[in-house]
Write a protein that binds this DNA or RNA. Structure first.
Lengths: 130, 130
DNA sequence: GTAACTGCAAAATATTTGCATCCTT
DNA sequence: AAGGATGCAAATATTTTGCAGTTAC
């Protein structure tokens, strides 16, 4: 397989879903929201494709599960996912925040290529709910 | 089960192993280093126990796997794992760096309780190796 | 028409649970 | 001896791989 480059209904569906979501979605949520319109395995493959193309980025939660959100300024060559991620401990949702994350000064000998930062806490929705 | 509080040979072995390691270890590495001295499931349970007691902390890599390293200033009540983690893309090892990580200012409505930050790049050992 | 895409089955990987037995206190 | 700890088997969860049939271009 060359690489996810044909424009199929499945990809459109998933792109719309990710685009309309306020939060990063995991495979399970996507599968549920699509209500069986796309096979589980195809969902995995399309998500992988979106990431390869720099159209989405993957966030790995502390639970070890992968969450996906659309990238706004990335492409296949240059991928920068250097904003803050927030995980609400109440509703478990992961949100991309428009807060830049910079790599701090590292000890001698270490060079950085990427940074991933997840803050846990309580989100606005859950604050209002309590 | 009340909670991992008996001092057993298995726990001593694992504590020594974690203590002598320069890097955070995943279950697979621990299992291999122990060479079958402790059952896989027991390793999981003891690791969980160490974390509950604040003796170790768990770092979830982008691969979704859990890595464990000893905590130096934590206990069961207060757990602060607020230093930087480094993942070498060459040797795949995860190291705790003595670099503090502060929670940045968040958008209105978000409150933080914890932060997890992993920098990817090349570690000193792998720099020398190339 | 052809290569990419999809769906189904099955495998691989990581972790958890149940339960009988063993061992620390 | 009592209850926590361990080992083994089996279950659960997440993701990947193989392959035959389908579809976009």
């Amino acid at each position: 397989m060359e690489r996810q480059r044909r424009n199929t209904r499945s990809k459109q569906l998933m792109m719309n879903l990710l685009d309309s979501s306020q939060t990063a979605l995991c495979h399970e949520e996507i599968d549920r929201l699509l209500a069986g319109q796309i096979d589980r395995v195809t969902i995995y493959r399309i998500l992988q494709g979106f990431c390869d193309q720099g159209r989405a980025h993957k966030i790995t939660g502390d639970n070890g599960k992968a969450y996906y959100a659309l990238c706004h300024d990335c492409n296949a060559e240059e991928h920068h996912d250097d904003h803050l991620h927030f995980r609400c401990t109440q509703c478990r949702k992961i949100t991309c925040l428009d807060v830049p994350v910079a790599v701090p000064a590292l000890p001698t000998g270490y060079t950085a290529s990427d940074i991933s930062c997840i803050v846990s806490g309580c989100c606005p929705d859950c604050h209002n709910r309590i």
